[in-house]
């Protein structure tokens, strides 16, 4: 329904030229038009954090943005955080190894949120990790495995960076 616009954007390092309906949210665009279904819709009003993506390296709620607002921007989704198809990002490995997940629905948003946070704060305290993910809801784990994974990932990343 309604008018559409042509947008050009980078998603996970790949450039897309797409015609999108002007009222289409970025989340729907990523999921339905690009088939990147790792970005999940939990509440659709910006509170649960499941749809969090990186917009020019900064975390953003893709359910609260329109696709047209991403014109000319650089987007990273959960599908784009690993270095390659066969490798995982240290944060992904840490979540896997620390049982930082159960149903998996909140997981992509947790990871994208933490990518940004660990970039800003490579050596966080547990309390700082809890602050960082306080806008991402998880109903399964009680957050313990998630917090442990984030702290473990920070250490892995520091080691990888020779710190």
């Amino acid at each position: 329904m309604g008018e559409s616009r042509k947008i050009s954007l980078s998603v996970n390092g790949k450039t897309y030229e797409e015609e999108v309906e002007v009222r289409f949210t970025l989340a729907d665009f990523l999921r339905q038009q690009l088939g990147l279904t790792g970005t999940h819709l939990g509440c659709e009003h910006g509170v649960c954090g499941a749809c969090t993506i990186l917009l020019n390296g900064r975390s953003a709620r893709s359910c609260l943005m329109l696709a047209v607002q991403a014109d000319g921007q650089e987007i990273t989704t959960i599908e784009g955080i690993a270095p390659s198809e066969d490798e995982m990002h240290p944060l992904q490995e840490a979540f896997r190894d620390n049982h930082g997940l159960q149903c998996g629905f909140c997981t992509p948003g947790m990871l994208t949120t933490l990518i940004e946070f660990l970039g800003d704060n490579p050596d966080p305290t547990e309390q700082e990790v809890r602050e960082a993910i306080s806008g991402n809801l998880c109903r399964c784990t009680g957050y313990q495995g998630i917090v442990a994974a984030a702290l473990d990932a920070a250490q892995r990343l520091r080691e990888a960076n020779g710190a």
Binding site: T39, L41, T77, E79, M88, F95, R96, L101
Partner: peptide, 17 residues
């Protein structure tokens, strides 16, 4: 580990939607 751990962290797990 949870059998879906890798799929969950890479966004490959398929939910119905």
């Amino acid at each position: 580990r949870h059998d879906s751990a890798v799929n969950h962290v890479t966004g490959r797990s398929v939910f119905i939607d």
